[in-house]
Design a protein around this nucleic acid. Sequence first.
DNA 1: CTCCATTCCGGTAACGTTCTCGCTATTAAA
DNA 2: TTTAATAGCGAGAACGTTACCGGAATGGAG
Lengths: 335, 335
Amino acid sequence: MQNRSVTIKDIAKMLNISVATVSRALRDTYDVNAETRQKVLDMARQLNYKPNFNATGLAKGSTHNIGIVLPFITNYYFSTVITGIQEIAYENGFNITLYLTNDSEERELSIIENLSVSSLDGLLVSTSSLSSVHFQELIDMGIPVVFFDRVAKEVVTSKVMQDDFNGAVEATEHLVKNGYRNIAHITGPRGLILTEKRVQGYLSVLEKYQYPVREEWIVYSGFSQESGEGDVNHLLQSADMPDAIFASNDRKAVGAMQALKKRGIAIGSEIGVIGFTNDPISTIISPTLSTIAEPAFDIGKKSCELLLKHITKKNFIPEEVILPCRLIERESTRR
Amino acid sequence: MQNRSVTIKDIAKMLNISVATVSRALRDTYDVNAETRQKVLDMARQLNYKPNFNATGLAKGSTHNIGIVLPFITNYYFSTVITGIQEIAYENGFNITLYLTNDSEERELSIIENLSVSSLDGLLVSTSSLSSVHFQELIDMGIPVVFFDRVAKEVVTSKVMQDDFNGAVEATEHLVKNGYRNIAHITGPRGLILTEKRVQGYLSVLEKYQYPVREEWIVYSGFSQESGEGDVNHLLQSADMPDAIFASNDRKAVGAMQALKKRGIAIGSEIGVIGFTNDPISTIISPTLSTIAEPAFDIGKKSCELLLKHITKKNFIPEEVILPCRLIERESTRR
DNA sequence: CTCCATTCCGGTAACGTTCTCGCTATTAAA
DNA sequence: TTTAATAGCGAGAACGTTACCGGAATGGAG
């Protein structure tokens, strides 16, 4: 093993001073002469010294590491959130380690079970499970957790999400204003706050305009394109067809559009479609897809900022941040 | 600080045995009685013991951590590769920490400079810079590096990539067989192996069929949708227009298609378009996009497997793995 | 000239784990 | 029965860093 890297001992030996002084010099300037501090820094650079995070972690009880737990990264929303997280983490000298649950409750549990809590300063999570005791346990053990997007209701900690309720209101109201009257909503699984809020927003608009509300026009399923297709096929079997579809997700909306196209139904003129996310595909598909833009990047940044506050200030009071969405009108809702 | 977590000392104290025995019992079964081993495991579970990776890392000189360095994750290819990496890492009890370079050479350098090499067992990288001395330094320091996709020519280590040459051959030949004769190629930046190989594959087919080769029909630029649009606008200014476009990337192909649509040029019948990647958008855009499917997930898995071999076997002989691509015919190349 | 406060530095014990070595039983061989 | 081998365990150092505390040197006030 020739790859023994240089340590503060080496620096100390070189300068004939103690490791304690070197350690102080490298961090804060407390109790150390400006001149010796400079000598230490110079020598550190010269020897190409890199701090050993394991040792620091052991001694200080804190690492430069935060974990991200989320369902997957192969979609626009999550990959953009991560990019935002990474931006803030990088600026503050934190590393991020990634845990993918594949949207499986089991796997999420197993990940949390086997987490080396001692090598993590905090956790950013978008959960895939309805229960949240495993996260509560983490918090009780003293490691801060911040939720984003798919948040856990019961846990008291900081949470960051888009304004799902008002986003849904805007989407539905946009359909109303464009002359659609029989509006269906295809959405994610029950139990998710995100799902509930969007349904509430949708219903509130129907109520406001005294438009028809039908049980069978609210379809709960997954977030994938396939489920969007399935949902529409299901909807079109009902006796009275809706003339507009609000999908809780652009991928679902795309699936819906594909299903409509297959049946020769004209999107826009016959049935309006609006999505949620502002995934780039919404500008690529034809007709282009109206949608509610989510501030994914900012959600990532904000989540990370909050987590860092939890980490640095021991008794930081949890904040729930709701970032606004924005309606983007395109062709799919034009009559 | 009430969050002192349980250590092997606690287990040892509970069972009235030494920490050394506990340590051995928790790992291999070497030098420890089956019965005591069981008692230790039971007690560990009962106390909810989680190993401290920092301590392990310090003592063993190895962490359970591998780093991934890549340009970004907000596209289908890279996010899928990461998912593959993560799969293998998870199976083997490794964590992955993510470093995004934003496709900036500067940032990549800064990341490598500040890397805490001691907290990393190995590195998986898709580089954004033409030079590669910084990676060579890492390898010299004894930390294994495996390249994927955007590999560094000069560094001797394991590399995993798709078969860019033959993929390009298949794409070009597919255009030839569908009756296109004047075939242009819009591709990524010069200097990338991946770019070079695809150009070579493209040229080899033109040569084979003795089809026209024009300097101005090979356009080097970026990988984005915008650059695809720009490339086509540039191409259409040339005196003799091509009747087919081979794009080195689906996003570029989409940009190209958008540009063609804007000019009212019929895709397929007038100008054929084929991409590379098999991004899901290729089935969503209309007409659907023919493309060369890359084995992104398998590239991730294979890269990680190789890295783990480098990590465990000190003198593992580097392997260069080339995974096959696959032609997918869709509407954009149908006359 | 004495005394005290301040500045700066060093020694040393932690942090949680693994590793090396040596010791004690126990078993097998003679 | 004696001896050698082996299985199982413990003591203590080490990994690189930080935290705590004590002490030497310096300067200024009296």
